[in-house]
Amino acid sequence: MTKNYQVSGMTCEHCAQSVTEEISQIPGAQGVEVDLASGRVTVTGEDFSDADITAAVEEAGYSVVAPE
């Protein structure tokens, strides 16, 4: 499955790396792609939930505005 999330607060490559690192630790999340310009984070894999992604993004210090 592939899901997109709108994340606020990311402004640089370090931000993108932090979010990618946290999401990558979720069991079932196999790929993470961050588009800094739009704030969109695309997650691919199996058996991950919106709550898992939101918690990982918050752990990195950012907020999920909404799943898309």
Results as ranks from 00 to 15, higher is better:
Val7Ala: 07
Gly31Ala: 13
Ser63Glu: 13
Ala29Phe: 00
Ala37Leu: 04
Glu13Lys: 14
Glu59His: 12
Tyr5Met: 08
Glu68Leu: 06
Gln17Ile: 03
Asp50Thr: 03
Glu22His: 04
Val34Cys: 04
Asn4Tyr: 08
Thr2Trp: 07
Gln17Glu: 12
Ser49Trp: 09
Met10Asp: 09
Gln17Val: 05
Ser49Asn: 11
Ile53Trp: 04
Pro67Thr: 05
Ala66Tyr: 03
Ala29Trp: 00
Tyr62His: 06
Thr42Met: 10
Gly9His: 10
Ser24Ile: 03
Asp35Ile: 03
Glu21Gln: 07
Glu68Met: 05
Ser24Met: 03
His14Arg: 11
Gln17Pro: 04
Tyr62Gln: 06
Val65Ser: 05
Val65Thr: 04
Glu68Lys: 05
Gly61Cys: 03
Cys12Val: 07
Glu68Gln: 12
Thr2His: 14
Tyr62Leu: 06
Ile26Phe: 04
Lys3Trp: 11
Val43Trp: 10
Ala60Tyr: 04
Val57Thr: 01
Ala16His: 06
Gly61Glu: 08
Ala66Val: 00
Ile53Tyr: 06
Met10Pro: 14
Ser18His: 04
Ala56Pro: 02
Gly31Ile: 00
Glu58Cys: 06
Ala51Glu: 15
Cys12Phe: 13
Tyr62Asn: 07
Thr54Ala: 15
Thr54Tyr: 10
Asp47Thr: 05
Ala29Arg: 00
Ser8Gly: 14
Thr42Leu: 10
Glu13Ala: 15
Ala16Glu: 12
Ile53Phe: 06
Pro27Met: 11
Glu33Gln: 12
Gly61Lys: 09
Ile26Val: 05
Asp50Ala: 03
Ala29Pro: 01
Ser38Arg: 08
Ala51Leu: 07
Val34Phe: 02
Gln25Cys: 02
Ala56Ile: 00
Ala66Asn: 05
Ile53Cys: 08
Asp52Leu: 01
Gln17Cys: 03
Gln6His: 09
Asn4Gln: 09
Val7Pro: 12
Ser38Asn: 11
